[in-house]
Every structure is written in C-alpha cells, then in structure tokens.
Design a protein around this nucleic acid. Structure first.
Lengths: 194, 194
DNA sequence: GGGAATCTTCACAGATCAGTGTACGAAGGA
DNA sequence: TCCTTCGTACACTGATCTGTGAAGATTCCC
C-alpha cells in the first residue's frame, strides 16, 4: 500500500515498469495534459485498470515520471563532476552533462514544461521540479566554494541562469546549440570569478 | 469576416476587448489548457456565444492573446533601446526592459509556456512564439553589428541565452532576481565582445 | 494445494470541454 | 424605415477525460 504522491521508480512490477517508460516518452514528447491515461495504457500493452492498480492516479504517474527523470539527470551530472579534478572543470561539468543530455531531449526541460502545464502549486510535480532546480543551484554553489570563489552564491546564480538559458533555447532556438553556448560562457564566468 | 488564425488586437469591439483582456490574465496566470472558454466568457461578463462570434475558436483566442502580448513586449523593448545612445547600453537595453516586465509577470515566459502546453507544431501559437524569439535574436544581432562587434551572430546567441535564462529563472528560482543577474552578465559579455 | 500478487476484460459513471443552433433585443447609420 | 452590427439567452451535441466496479485468469511462492 502506497498512499504517497510518488512511487519508487526502482522497485516496480514489470507492468508498472512498462507503463512508466511509455508515460515518460509520451509525456515528454507530447505534453502531460495532451496525453491521456488511455493512450499510456494502450501503448504500454496494459489495461487502464492495471495503470490505476499500480499508480492510483494520473497525478502520481506524472510525479513518478518526473522523479525518475530527476534521478537519471542527477546521476549523469554527478558522473560528469566526479570525472574531473580541476576546480573550474568541476564547476562547469553540469554543462557538459547538459550537452550529452540535450541530444536525446530536444523538447526543452521537462520540469519547466511541467510547471507550465500544471499551474496548481499543490500538484506533486511542483515540488519535484523545484527540488531539481534547487539541487543544481546548490551543487553549483558547493563547487564554487570548493574552488575558493569569493562569492559562491553569486557565481552559482550566474551559472544557474546560463543553465536555464541553455535549456530554454532548445525549445525557442532549435537551430542553435544552446548547451554549447552556455558551456562556453560558463567557462568564462567561472574563470573570471576565481 | 476574418478567417485567419488571429485578429488584430487593436481593432476589437468592446465585448471582444473585454474577452481578450480577461483571457490574457487567465491564460497567463493559470495556463491555457487549464482555462476553459466558459470561464473566460463568464469572467468577461459576456456570453460564450459572443466569444465564439468574435473569435471563432479557442485556438484563435489563444493566438490573439499571444500576439497582443508580443506587440506590448516589442514596444517596451524598443522604447528601452531608443532611450539609449551608447552602443553597449543599446545592446543590453532588452535586459532593462525585462526587469521592468518581470515585475508584473512572475510566471515566466508566456511564449515558452505556450510551447510547452501546446505541443502541436501546427498550432498558430507556435509561429507567434517562435517569431517573438527570432525577433529578439535579430535585434541583438543588429545592435551588435551597429556596435561593431567582431562576431555579431555569436554575441547575439550569447545574449539570447542569457535572456532565456532570466525568463526561466522566474519560474524555477523565484527567490532570485533573474533579470538582474542576466543584465549584469550581459553587460560583461557585451563589453568583452567589443 | 492454498494463497497472494499481478494483470485482464469490459462496461460504466461523472465530469468537463469546445463548439453550435435558434430566436431575440438594442443601437446606429443610410 | 430598413439594415447591419453587436450582444444576449439557453439548451444541446458530441467528444474526451479521469477514475471505478466486479469477476476471472495466470504465475509464483509457501
């Protein structure tokens, strides 16, 4: 029995796993509101009844989708950060992660899109999306501190701004490699602040 | 008779004017999909029939809402640009416009939100949103050219990235003044490129 | 063999949504 | 006076959406 607003994406029944994979693809590609549970169930090769038996509600399915995406993104970022030793390189590592991530995710940031689609601040997706952003800002700040930056908070806010800009550019300027541009700027900003 | 996908927001009957004003507020605050035409009509003090007699469809109303917002934004930007003479100041003027704009628009960029909510590329809102972004990029590039920048396209892409980042931060980091941070960065980037 | 968990089948409820048809009233210009 | 424009009143359609109820099949573990 799970009454919470999300499920642990790592411990799912086979059917639930297929549902979540299908939902992740459909929600990201076509938008959360535009995709109905009937479609998710049909494309998963599963009954709608199973979907509700596993997830309880569409909102919970949406939240679980975002939660898993969050975990995958954080893991990728930490892999990039840990692979580097130089202070500046560690600071800008999330931008390298973003370049990798962007290749498979051309429709911008799933969390920003979710915030836009679900205006109700009480929706569980809000907390997940805001937590993800907060986590990245804090990571920037920790890296800046460890690099000996004079004003780690200022630097982290600047880097975060560049990161959000790169993500937004995927949707608003598809002809330009936003992640590449932001990465270049991030290097300069970080070097200047150290 | 108007068969196009938008109406000229400057030539509207009194009823249509009220409908568009109400729709603009509701769509921006609560999201386009979440707001039904019944609510828009009721809040405008108008019948749903009048809404459809004036605008023909919800999609057209949405497109007209975005079109008017686009015009207001462009007018504000041009006012800020024209008020300055120094080359660098003219380049970063849109960021000053953004600081003014952000005060009344805390839910991020209406165009990005519309793109997230309406995944169908054929929706008239898409063209309007992408045109708006393209216009700003071109404005940055023209300003960079006039200032004698060595690589105007590169500079404009960087400034655009900062601009998109500032907008996205409104939704993802409400505790920080994204427009202020981006404006500071834009100054440095512009000066370095001249 | 017994029992629990997983998933299927399928009809159905209840709500909401965009959009329409028709008839009518009021104002203003030619 | 006639005609057009603008708006009202209100019922109604057809589609779609989330979510439920109840009964049965399969699998796997004890």
């Amino acid at each position: 029995m799970n009454k919470s607003s999300t499920f642990d994406p790592d411990t799912l029944t086979p059917g639930a796993r297929r549902i979540l994979d299908t939902a992740a693809e459909l929600f990201y590609e076509n938008g959360i509101t535009a995709v109905g549970v009937d479609l998710v169930a049909a494309r998963s090769g599963v009954t709608k009844r199973t979907l509700y038996n596993r997830f309880g509600s569409k909102d919970t399915l949406v939240a679980t989708y975002l939660l898993e995406r969050d975990r995958r993104w954080r893991a990728l970022v930490m892999r990039c950060v840990d692979a580097r030793t130089a202070a500046v390189e560690r600071i800008v590592a999330p931008f390298e992660a973003l370049r990798e991530w962007s290749a498979d995710n051309p429709r911008g940031c799933a969390f920003i899109n979710a915030l836009a689609e679900l205006p109700d601040p009480g929706h569980p997706a809000h907390r997940i999306a805001l937590d993800e952003k907060r986590w990245l800002r804090d990571l920037f700040e920790r890296s800046a501190e460890q690099a000996g930056a004079e004003h780690p908070a200022d630097l982290s806010e600047r880097l975060f701004c560049l990161h959000e800009g790169a993500l937004a550019m995927q949707a608003t300027a598809p002809d330009v490699d936003g992640a590449h541009i932001a990465a270049g700027l991030a290097h300069e900003v970080a070097r200047a602040a150290l």
